[in-house]
């Protein structure tokens, strides 16, 4: 093996080491980003569900975290009404 072949060999080994380091760095960054994403998302969910009070309902009447829309909008009615809705 002459000097030229030796230099080519060292350069190739250097490139492989740089490639492996880059791959490890990318993998580590991906893992950290995933971990951060989970933590961030959990924190966001906790913040959204935090009522700001020590209220602990646990009640079946709590009704969820949003006002419940109807299954369908009212339809135009015809005929006499069963009852009225208005100011009381």
């Amino acid at each position: 093996m002459n000097d030229t072949q030796a230099r080519i060999g060292r350069r190739a080994e250097g490139n492989r080491r740089v490639g492996r380091a880059t791959a490890w760095t990318a993998a580590a960054c991906t893992a950290l980003a995933t971990l951060f994403g989970v933590v961030f998302a959990t924190g966001t969910t906790d913040a959204q569900s935090d009522t700001g009070t020590s209220t602990s309902t646990g009640s079946s009447t709590d009704g969820g975290d949003s006002l419940q829309a109807p299954d369908s909008a009212p339809e135009q009615g015809s005929g006499s009404a069963h009852t009225g809705s208005g100011g009381s």
């Binding site: 109807p70 299954d71 009212p74 339809e75 009615g77 015809s78 005929g79 009225g84 100011g87």
Partner: peptide, 27 residues
């Protein structure tokens, strides 16, 4: 035809003088 509810300014007079009547089935 569903439960028919007359809408008005005053619930007591809405049936006799409805501004509109809607039909509701649930909720």
């Amino acid at each position: 035809g569903g439960w028919r509810v007359a809408i008005g300014d005053d619930h007591r007079t809405a049936v006799a003088d409805p501004q509109t009547v809607v039909a509701v089935r649930r909720g």
